[in-house]
Amino acid sequence: MNADARVPREPDGPKQWSFEVHPATVDRFDDLTAILSPQNPAAAACWCLSYRIPPQEFRALTGEERPARLRRYAEDGVPPGVIAYVDGEPAGWCSVSPRASHSRLAHSQTIPAVDDVPAWSVVCLVIRPEFRRRGMAHQLLGGAVSYARSQGAPVLEAYPIDPQGERISAAFAYTGTTELFEAAGFQRIVPTTSTSGGKMRWLMQLSLD
């Protein structure tokens, strides 16, 4: 899958970004590492595993072990999400894959499934600091939607926070906001009892049929 778009390097600059989105296949895992890796490789970064694997396994993995655990999804032939590139440089990440592949979601009491449709889930969006504030989150999400549709997903779900007009800390921005997903055509289905940064999260859906 390849989603191309053009975004400005500077608001008044003549040069344009070259923007692409690709699945996080094994051959692109070094690019994903460039986006998700913390400054200290031993730090207990999430590596988009907290929803995917059982809590006991997640807690048992050291920070240095977690990248290899995420890579296993790509090695098994199911990319765990998509990578955004700007001028060929890895710039952003969106975790998008079948909800059934997320152990924590499958057993969640705070974000329960609303029906039996085999939905796909967006659980995380990350943009490297140097590429923020250019509207890239919208294009990254658009690439994730296109990828899920290309893989036959009937419905795409997300669980963003509702900022209610307040500024959101970057530490909690990984969920995305209700406004971001509404702009992409998602609809609010039910409020959840899950929170992030003290803000309520909604279960939102976009039909891909």
Rank of each mutant, 00 (worst) to 15 (best):
M1S: 10
A3V: 15
D4A: 14
A5T: 05
V7C: 15
V7M: 11
P8F: 12
R9N: 15
R9W: 00
E10D: 12
P11L: 07
P11Q: 08
D12L: 15
G13A: 12
Q16I: 10
W17C: 08
W17K: 05
S18H: 10
H22K: 14
A24R: 06
V26M: 01
V26A: 10
F29C: 02
F29N: 06
D30E: 14
D30S: 14
L32G: 02
I35Q: 09
L36P: 03
S37R: 08
S37C: 03
P38G: 15
P38V: 05
P38I: 01
Q39V: 13
P41M: 04
P41D: 09
A43F: 11
A43R: 03
A44Q: 06
A44T: 00
A45T: 01
C46W: 12
W47M: 00
C48Q: 11
C48R: 14
C48K: 02
L49V: 09
S50K: 06
Y51I: 06
Y51Q: 05
L61G: 02
E64V: 13
R66E: 13
P67K: 00
P67Q: 01
Y73T: 02
Y73D: 07
A74F: 02
E75S: 12
E75Y: 01
E75I: 03
D76C: 05
D76T: 05
P80H: 11
P80R: 05
V82C: 05
V82R: 08
I83S: 06
A84C: 15
V86M: 04
V86S: 08
D87S: 09
W93F: 11
V96D: 03
V96Y: 12
R99L: 03
A100V: 00
A100N: 05
S103G: 07
H107C: 15
Q109E: 12
T110W: 12
T110N: 08
P112C: 00
A113V: 05
V114L: 14
D116T: 01
V122P: 06
V123F: 09
V123H: 15
V123I: 14
L125Q: 02
L125E: 09
V126D: 08
I127H: 01
P129Q: 08
E130V: 06
R132T: 09
R132F: 09
G135I: 04
M136P: 09
M136R: 11
Q139F: 11
Q139M: 05
L140F: 05
L141A: 03
G142Q: 12
V145E: 04
S146D: 08
A148H: 01
R149Q: 15
G152V: 02
A153H: 04
V155H: 05
L156S: 06
L156Y: 02
A158L: 06
Y159L: 13
I161L: 11
D162S: 13
D162Y: 08
P163L: 04
Q164M: 14
I168P: 00
I168C: 04
A171L: 02
A171H: 02
A173Y: 14
T177M: 11
T178W: 04
E179P: 11
L180T: 00
F181N: 09
A183K: 15
A183S: 13
A183Y: 13
F186G: 03
F186Q: 03
R188K: 15
I189M: 02
S196H: 12
G197I: 01
G198Q: 07
K199I: 00
K199H: 13
K199T: 03
M200N: 09
M204R: 00
M204P: 13
S207W: 10
